[in-house]
Design a protein around this nucleic acid. Structure first.
Lengths: 155, 155
DNA sequence: ATTGAAAGAGTCTCAGT
DNA sequence: ACTGAGACTCTTTCAAT
């Protein structure tokens, strides 16, 4: 099956379109998908009720907002049992926008967004290294984000 | 300065709020920020005109949509001059949702979202390894996404 | 720049199919 | 389950400040 709930092609088409642009009106989206605006409305309400659609988010240009640096940090823990306490500390750092518990080289994998390299250095040396339980870190600085897009739910 | 354009506190408050929830009405957001709905409207139009606000996106629950696996792949290139041609091939793979050109261990760093581990195996062994210019890859599988959030543009 | 009100456009509900 | 129309709400424009 294509998904855990029983979504049909129309549901997926709605999701696919609105993942890129949630501003389109139900009437206009209905025209594109050859159904009425009312049908789009009913489908979206159902998707919201089921928890599949959680809302909409503003899409901004981070560089224009002054955030020039994206970095990925692999974290080695002293013991893997320290995950939860380290995660709690990482959550407090506003520059840390994402945390994953990973297999492979690192125990934890973090994404950091900040304004410039000096701010990144501050986060790495002043903030991260002071968290108890972190043995060492490895930093990948993004020199360029070639692309970032959503999953494609239709072929 | 806080940013490259001259954004005041109200602009940042609007952005901060709508990055989490873009569905709020101008009137309601105005009430929260102690200005009229008309002012919110004017500010958002200016932010759009300046390219800071690029639109809104549907926020979905990927697990409920059947996408259970997030993986990060570090890619070693045979020569760094192959970046562009490899990037073009990676873009064609729908499972690859993000590509960064990075300093550090790897030349390229990729995020993959797919439905299950067998699909990930297929992407890694059938698709990635066939791209000319890739020497080898290192995979981090996310066992859990502890959090994922936006940058905080206000203190 | 901000406001408030009127006009226009979109969402939501519901009876009919 | 889909449709279309009416009620309601939100966005957009604009004259006044």
């Amino acid at each position: 099956m294509n998904n855990k709930l029983n979504l049909d092609k129309l549901d997926l088409q709605i999701i696919q379109h609105m993942m890129e642009d949630a501003e389109i009106s139900y009437a206009d989206l209905g025209k594109k998908l050859f159904v009425s605006g009312g049908t789009i409305h009913v489908r979206i309400k159902k998707l919201q009720k089921d928890g599949i659609v959680k809302g909409t988010k503003l899409n901004t240009d981070l560089k224009l907002l002054g955030y020039d640096v994206i970095a990925f940090i692999g974290i080695y823990l002293k013991e893997s049992s320290l995950y939860d306490s380290v995660a709690k500390e990482l959550y407090k750092l506003k520059e840390v926008v994402r945390l994953n518990y990973t297999t492979g080289n690192y125990s934890m994998f973090v994404e950091i967004i900040c304004k410039d390299i000096s701010e990144l250095r501050n986060v790495l040396h002043e903030k991260l290294q002071k968290i108890k339980g972190i043995e060492r870190t490895e930093t990948l600085i993004s020199l360029e984000e070639s692309f970032a897009r959503n999953v494609r739910v239709l072929d």
